[in-house]
Design a protein around this nucleic acid. Structure first.
Lengths: 347, 347
DNA sequence: TTGTACGCGTTATCAG
DNA sequence: CTGATAACGCGTACAA
């Protein structure tokens, strides 16, 4: 290292990655000017700006983001996380999650942000702050609230830029984007009822923030017909094919005989249909099945799924909009998106 | 803000996030000692180390990663990217991709790394270097090589820590992990042949690095039976349900009548089965269909898919192992994983 | 419009 | 084993 130093000459760059001082020298201006020029600061003469930018580009120079964010307190990174408090296993590869992640990746990158992906299984103290990675991210997008509403609220009140996909909850200190889940549950159940179904099973965990209102919609639709939900037809299942499959098998084994099923996700619906098929029950002749989400698979499974569509593309766009606004300390409100009934073969 | 300042007292921390100097003061040691203690540097007395760590933890202190990486040149972030040169659309939510991403997220987080997710559609100069985000990431994991072998090689030779999931190619300057694709193609096609199928269609883009050897395996299996591939049964399709569905419909419309189909992914297989069903063809009675990957869906689609399983969990683990080794400038080799035939209903 | 000077919060070097 | 001190590479008041 010291021998290197002694050979050093004026023309020698010699440190691998170029830095601003190098560009400054090449352009014959000061570092500050380079900094401003690269930031497209109009305070720099247009000519100078263009010159510096060209030199930097030709030299393949890239700003050191660590140094930049150490100064500016901004990183250009958004942390996207999936809270899984209620999940046994990873379900990051749930098609719904994946679709949302892909859409978020699109939205974020198209606005110059990078996306840091985290899976949070253990929710120890400060897990949300951890997502910020101590400043390695400017803000946090949560996909689903799990049972962490309180923690999210606290983080938001602590000034953290955070936005969640999910249900609008009481006393929410953070903006959220989500479907009108009660309406979704209502539409789904009414559709089954309109097809003459009366013994309608509910598949999903009604304790979750997003699912509770779907369950409420389900009960309300039943009530409209003077029906009361049958406890044996309430089946708690995770958002996983295997789990739904087993749960429905178990329900049938206990002798329950639904003529309709409202599954709170398409994946659950597919698992249910498989279990029904194993039991020799035909869909929709013997049992009508309706899902939720309208993932890509829904149209291609057999039978194709009647489902409640969530507009995830819109959701992703809004989430990013709101997060960016929150990062800029602008006031941001919550949006509830109307879900839509999509009728296919299964119900 | 200024009114707050005026109330300032000696005990008041008042700069939001604590910093090392604060912990140093609380612990009655120097910043250097704090730094070392938090890094678990054994040069610090065990007692002191424990004390400092406890104080830091209790105070909720977290190291500023920007400052840390400005000094240490390490970020603890790995960039994971999906090159999509050959893709029209985003297919980040392809189940295969998603499974891989989820597994990588697990592997990385369990080793203390964060995962920066990028989708690369336009491969302009220096796109790989861009993934490093100018130092915001320590290394790059590529899922698939697309047509970018040369660019990847150049980046690797330039000293960038990079690892790819995919096929082992000639003159590879970077380590890769992937299935033995030719063997996979061979197993798949032989299975169809053993079931008496003779007019076997190939669904996929055989120009892609990972698909070419599957195609070679397909041809070899046919050759073993003295058969030559029928050009009308070679259907180029993207890794998307819709596209596969349309492509198979088009093939059938042209009058092609395969009795077997080797689809290079399960998603493609599902699309194909749908198109066959539309044409009144039964699977497997009229046409046997075999897929590739063994994604979660494979076991639950109807009919369930016979397929060639890729061990993605192992793959993800190896990718991360190798990347970490490369980051440490250790020599790293390429691994080829044996694929496995999984027999279900579709063939 | 441009340059000077300083500091962001850490880690590494070196001396004690 | 511990502490002082000097970078790391950039952004930004402030001065010119």
């Amino acid at each position: 290292m010291s021998p290197r130093k002694s050979i050093k000459t004026a023309t020698e760059p010699l440190h691998g990655p170029l830095q601003m001082s190098d560009i400054a020298r090449m352009a014959g201006v000061s570092e500050s000017t380079v900094s401003r020029a690269l930031a497209n600061n109009p305070a720099v003469a247009a000519r100078t700006r263009a010159l510096v930018q060209k030199i930097a580009a030709d030299a393949g120079y890239r700003i050191n983001p660590a140094a930049r964010s150490l100064r500016s307190k901004r990183t250009g990174i958004v942390s996207v996380a999936v809270p899984l408090a209620h999940q046994r296993a990873q379900h990051l590869y749930d098609p719904f999650m994946m679709t949302m992640l892909a859409l978020l990746a699109d939205e974020l990158t198209s606005r110059g942000y990078s996306m840091l992906l985290s899976k949070v299984a253990k929710h120890q103290d400060g897990w949300i702050e951890d997502l910020l990675n101590g400043g390695q991210a400017d803000g946090v997008i949560l996909i689903g609230q799990s049972f962490e509403h309180e923690a999210i609220n606290r983080a938001a009140q602590g000034g953290l830029a955070i936005v969640a996909w999910g249900e609008q909850l009481a006393d929410q200190a953070y903006p959220s984007v989500g479907s009108d889940n009660q309406l979704g549950g209502l539409l789904a159940t009414r559709h089954l009822l309109e097809h003459g179904r009366r013994r309608i099973a509910f598949l999903g965990d009604e304790r979750l923030p997003e699912i509770a209102p779907r369950f409420a919609g389900y009960r309300r639709a039943l009530a409209e017909q003077g029906l009361t939900p049958d406890r044996t037809l309430l089946v708690r299942t995770e958002f996983e094919l295997d789990d739904a499959y087993r749960a429905v098998k178990a329900m049938l084994a206990k002798g329950a005989r639904p003529d309709g099923i409202f599954a709170v996700s398409d994946v659950i619906a597919v698992g249910a249909i498989r279990a029904l098929a194993d039991a020799g029950l035909r869909v929709p002749q013997d049992v009508s099945v309706i899902g939720f989400d309208d993932i890509a698979l829904a149209a291609y499974s057999h039978p194709s799924l009647t489902t409640i569509r969530q507009d995830l593309a819109l959701g992703a766009r809004l989430l990013v909009d709101k997060l960016i606004a929150r990062c800029a300390n602008l006031p941001v409100d919550t949006t509830v998106i109307a879900p839509q009934l999509i009728v296919r073969e299964s119900a």
